[in-house]
Nucleic acid binder design. Structure first.
Lengths: 203, 203
DNA sequence: AAATAACGAAACGACTCGTCTAGTATCGTA
DNA sequence: TACGATACTAGACGAGTCGTTTCGTTATTT
C-alpha cells in the first residue's frame, strides 16, 4: 500500500468511478505556489490552499499527505530542465554559468520554496526521501553526465569521486544561502569553480 | 526596548524585586535539550518544556520569545570552544581535524539541534540574526584567526577572501548534511580540505 | 440501473502557540 | 515594618493548524 500519488503518470486507462479532477489538481498546485510567493511558508496552510483553490480540504489530503508534498509537487512541476550551455567554451565555464543560474534561482521568489523544502525535510524523513527522488537525484544525474562528458572529451583528468566533486562545487553555494546568509555573487561563484577545477582540468 | 535577555550577563548587581530563578532557567534549558534528544524538534513544545522543567509556561515566555530561542540558548550554552589542535603539524591538518570534528558533532545527537535551528531560521529572520550572532559569528572569528595565523607564519600565501575560503571548506560538509544526505566520512573531508589548500599553501 | 470513486462542505479532536489573569513569593527601599 | 517592584505558579483563553471523518452529491464505467 503506497501513498496516493498525484496523477496517474503514464497510466491513462479509464478507471471505474468518477475520474480525478485535473482542474482541481492544477488549482491546488498553483494556489500553493501563489500563497507561498505572497506570504512565504508560513502563509501556506492546507486550509488556505483549499480555500484559495476553491476545493475541499479532503481533496487535498486525498492526493497529498501534507502541505510540504504539495509544495514539492509544485516546485517539481515548474522545474525547467537544467540548461546545457551548449555555447560555453569549456566545462569550467558551463559549471560557472550553471552555478550562477542556480544561485539566482534559489535566492529569488521562484526558488524560495526549494529552500523551504530543504528546511522542512530536516524533520521529515518521508519528505526527505521524496525530495531526493524527485528533485535532487534527477538534477544530480545531469551534473554527473556533464562531468563524465568532460572526462570523455579529455578536458578533465579522470575524476575519482564525481559526487564529491559536485558537492564541493554546489556545497558552498547552498551553505551561503542556508547557513551564513552571505551573498552569492559572481565573484564567489568564480572562486568556487576555479578552485574545484584547478586540480582536475587537463591543461 | 529590547527582547528580554536570559541572564544578566556580568551585571550581578542586586535589583529590586524578586530575583530571577537560576534554577528555573537551568531546568528549562536542560528540559528543552532532553526533549529534543528524546523526540526531535517535534517533541519540543513550549508546554512540554514547561511541564518537563516543572515550571510555568509564563516563565518560559518571560525570558525567551519562542521554543527555538530556548533551543539556541541551550546549544550555545553547551558549545565547547573550538579546539586549537595545537599538535597538528600543519594548518591543513588542523582544518582536517576541525572539519572532521564538526561533521561528527553535527551528525550526532549533540549537534542535531543545530541542524534543527538552521532549518527553523529559514523562516524566521529574528532567529536567523540570533543564530548568526551567538553561534555562527563567534565560530567564524576563530576560523578566520586560524587562517590569518597560517598566513602570518608563512604557511599560506596571502588569502584574498578569507570568508570565501572558509565557506569553500565548510560548505560541502553542511551541504551533505542538510541537502544531499550523503555521509560525511574522512575521505570526503580530506578531499575537501586538500582541494581548498592546494592553491594557497606555500610549498 | 448499479457499482464505484472523486467531489464539496463542514465538523471534529488533538495539538500548539502566545497571551493573559490571579494569586503568591522574594527581593530592595522608605 | 510596610510598600513597591519583580518573578514565580497554575491554568484558562482565543486563534490557528493539522489530518481525519461524515455525509450527501456528481461523474464515469459496467
Amino acid at each position: 500500500m503506497t501513498t496516493p500519488t498525484p496523477g496517474r503518470g503514464l497510466d491513462t486507462r479509464a478507471r471505474r468511478g468518477r475520474p480525478r479532477s485535473e482542474a482541481a489538481r492544477r488549482a491546488i498546485l498553483s494556489a500553493a505556489e501563489r500563497l507561498f510567493r505572497e506570504g512565504g511558508f508560513g502563509a501556506v496552510s492546507v486550509d488556505a490552499i483549499a480555500a484559495a483553490a476553491g476545493v475541499s480540504k479532503a481533496t487535498v489530503y486525498r492526493w497529498w499527505p501534507n502541505k510540504a508534498a504539495v509544495l514539492l509537487e509544485s516546485v517539481v512541476g515548474r522545474m525547467r530542465p537544467l540548461a546545457d550551455y551548449r555555447d560555453a567554451p569549456t566545462l569550467r565555464e558551463k559549471f560557472r554559468r550553471q552555478l550562477a543560474d542556480t544561485a539566482r534561482y534559489l535566492t529569488t521568489a521562484e526558488g524560495a520554496p526549494v529552500i523551504a523544502l530543504i528546511a522542512a525535510k530536516q524533520g521529515d524523513p518521508q519528505l526527505a526521501r521524496e525530495f531526493a527522488e524527485r528533485y535532487a537525484i534527477p538534477r544530480r544525474a545531469r551534473l554527473r553526465a556533464m562531468v563524465t562528458e568532460g572526462v570523455r572529451r579529455g578536458e578533465l583528468r579522470p575524476v575519482k569521486d564525481i559526487d564529491a566533486l559536485i558537492d564541493m562545487i554546489y556545497g558552498p553555494i547552498y551553505y551561503r544561502i542556508l547557513v551564513t546568509g552571505r551573498p552569492v555573487d559572481d565573484a564567489f561563484v568564480d572562486t568556487v569553480v576555479d578552485s574545484a577545477f584547478e586540480r582536475i582540468e587537463r591543461r
